[in-house]
Amino acid sequence: MKSLFNPSESNHIIQRIGKLTPESQGVWGRMNVAQMLAHCQCNLRIALGEQSVKRVLVGILFGGFARKQLVKPEPFKKGLPTAREFLVADQRDFEKEKSELKALIEKFTNGGPEGLTDDPHPFFGRMTQQEWDVLQWKHLDHHFRQFGV
């Protein structure tokens, strides 16, 4: 499984961000490219302990089962539900969002497993360092595939 804790694999993700342009169009979904970049920051901020979101009932009930599916090698499928707190509907500045996402990825990579929060994920609950890492990689890959990079 690929890891953002691996600097070369993290660099590969950052290179994919570099292929995006303000004109990049999503193959599925409703977000434009700047909104997607802002959305991707939310999950990283949660993992780094910079943002907290209250656990949701559906996550309390089903998050443990979903977390077990998370570590499987298959990429995320299209159309997975998104928590209301992670939705980005307002217009965003592409260059600003791109720069902030790169900085968060670098912070995640450089901080290593010790830089992760001990707080539970709002849906998946308590997660291991490996699960946080897998979630970040797969989430970023999912949205970059959405925009063709």
Rank of each mutant, 00 (worst) to 15 (best):
H12G: 02
G26H: 11
S24N: 07
R45I: 03
P75L: 07
E74R: 02
K96P: 00
Q35F: 03
F62Q: 13
F124H: 01
L57V: 12
V53N: 00
V149E: 10
K102L: 09
Q91L: 12
M127R: 06
A89G: 07
K98A: 12
I46K: 04
F147Q: 00
R55K: 12
F144E: 07
F86M: 14
F76I: 06
L104R: 15
L101Q: 07
N6P: 07
Q15D: 08
E131K: 07
Q69I: 04
K102N: 08
E74A: 03
Q91S: 15
I60E: 12
T109Y: 02
L20Q: 01
H142N: 09
P120E: 02
F5N: 05
F124W: 07
H139L: 04
I60N: 12
P73H: 06
R126S: 10
E131F: 09
C42G: 01
T117L: 09
L70W: 07
E50F: 05
E85C: 10
A66G: 06
F76G: 09
G148R: 08
P120D: 03
P113V: 02
E97C: 04
I14G: 01
A103V: 09
E74N: 00
E95V: 03
E85I: 11
I17H: 07
W132P: 03
A103F: 05
W132R: 02
T128D: 10
V88E: 13
T21E: 13
K68D: 06
D141P: 06
K19W: 00
P7A: 00
A47Y: 09
I105N: 02
F144N: 04
L37P: 05
R92W: 06
